[in-house]
Nucleic acid binder design. Structure first.
Lengths: 275, 275
DNA sequence: GAGGCGCCGTATCGTATGTTACGTATTTTG
DNA sequence: CAAAATACGTAACATACGATACGGCGCCTC
């Protein structure tokens, strides 16, 4: 990666004229917040004129002020996504660090849960805890196994759970049985599948309540969804990670099971009898 | 203390109309970066119109968009200055801790990796990176989705990957094609399935190399297995957790992909051409 | 099935913002 | 010390940004 803007400034600050240097120091002092405000704010804070600010960012190599701001934002975003501080592991354990893949995954899971409110969880649990409303599950190329995993559990604790499998035309035939009270749980991460989007749209038109598990960039299906879980998927690997979504799915399964405890206990007993 | 904007959103998101909710979710998904950009950027990202964004921030209680942005920036600034006190819980857990379910899962994952040696990982990677040796995958009632997940990826990067599905008699018929060079990857956690054990034994007799993903109490299949990954599965939930095994699976997928990079790159290109 | 209500996007408007031209001040150089 | 070059701010400008008015559409109610 190229130098951070802070480094860039440190690098060139002594080639700058006095006023621009003041701008630089002002930015460094409260890095990077003042750079996200307007040129006027920046100039006022630094005690110089607007054009000086613009000449300053120009000297840093940016074509214009918005470009400079975008760079700052990108830097911030990267910084927020990888809180390096968390290494905490006692290095006495022979192996100093765990694999970056593992760390990234753990952080993804944490971050994903951070963005899911309890209320949201509860509402989804409620939605999926109504045994009289049919629940359909489906996923994309790589995420369908997660849908299957959820379906495998839900099927046990309540009736009316259906995992949609096979060809697209097959799903569509199931639409006829979906109504306003029913729930469709979709897993869709990049690259989002057209077939799923089409299906979600049709279901939405029938009034089906859609719960979407997607990545942080949100599948277009979010448009039709009543609830959206946005999981972090970025890992140092050629593939995106579905681990965070998997863990969320497990958490949901647990809570739904508790919610249905009374009713499902009898059901499970009956099932075992049937063997 | 005033509520953070993320909390504010979680609080009111269900009183919002569909489009505004979409804006809210988009913001939460990549919090808070998109909120620092222009209304046009924000609206485009969320797939709604500019006025919807403005109505959204208005509903949050801000007089205008710049005021909203300033609030976001203030929050960011506070967060950056005290990197330790990352506002951790938008979910007002009262106790200020994340859910026990989440913590247990994270700990399980860590612990699982701690017990997997690097050499073991490398050997499994090697075993699964030989495209000329057939690789069969199968799992139990709840773990088969994880097997499917792995199969979905492996199928893309190399030939001769088969997920064993359907009835037990069906698997057995596949035995005929398994030999000493081939690999059978089995997922089996409590309660261990007899059918899997039987199958593993038969495969073992044919000299098939078995890689077993199980829980910390080890499925009886461990007896036949060349490599055993023992994942932690205990969580405060009525069910056991497969998250740790899932993460290990993902880690393996990543490393195998890298291992086969050269060969699989061409394969993937060919595949995309076939669409 | 008709009427009413709320949601949401299109199009338009005013303005705040970044940008540029230019003139004055300051420093540098021979 | 004079003259040139550079630095810097004032002021005018254009763009793009946020804000708003309006109309259509879907949804619920009766």
């Amino acid at each position: 990666m190229a130098l951070s803007i802070a480094e860039l400034i440190a690098d060139r600050i002594d080639t700058m004229p006095a006023s621009e240097r003041r701008a630089a120091q002002t930015l460094i002092a409260s890095y990077p917040m003042i750079g996200l405000k307007t040129v006027a704010d920046f100039s006022m804070q630094a005690g110089v004129s607007s054009p000086t600010i613009l000449r300053f960012v120009s000297r840093l190599g940016f074509q214009n002020y918005p470009e400079f701001q975008s760079a700052l934002q990108d830097e911030l975003a990267a910084q927020l996504q990888s809180p390096l501080s968390r290494t905490a592991s006692p290095s006495s354990h022979g192996r100093g660090e765990a694999s970056p893949m593992l760390e990234a995954t753990l952080e993804n899971i944490r971050e994903t849960f951070r963005h899911v409110s309890e209320k949201q969880m509860r509402e989804i649990v409620m939605l999926l805890s109504n045994p009289r409303a049919k629940t359909f599950l489906i996923g994309g190329r790589f995420t369908d196994p997660v849908a299957r995993y959820m379906a495998a559990h839900l099927t046990i604790i309540r009736p009316n759970v259906f995992h949609l499998t096979g060809q697209e035309s097959n799903w569509r035939d199931q639409l006829i049985d979906m109504g306003k009270r029913d729930v469709l749980l979709i897993f869709d991460i990049r690259r989002y599948q057209d077939s799923l989007v089409r299906f979600a749209e049709k279901a939405h038109q029938r009034g089906v309540q859609i719960v979407l598990f997607t990545d942080q960039w949100l599948s277009p299906i979010a448009r039709f969804a009543r609830h959206v879980i946005a999981g972090r998927t970025a890992v140092p690997s050629p593939w995106d990670s579905s681990s965070a979504l998997f863990v969320v799915a497990e958490a949901l399964i647990g809570e739904i099971t508790r919610e249905l405890e009374a009713e499902s206990a009898r059901r499970i007993r009956e099932m075992e009898d049937l063997r």
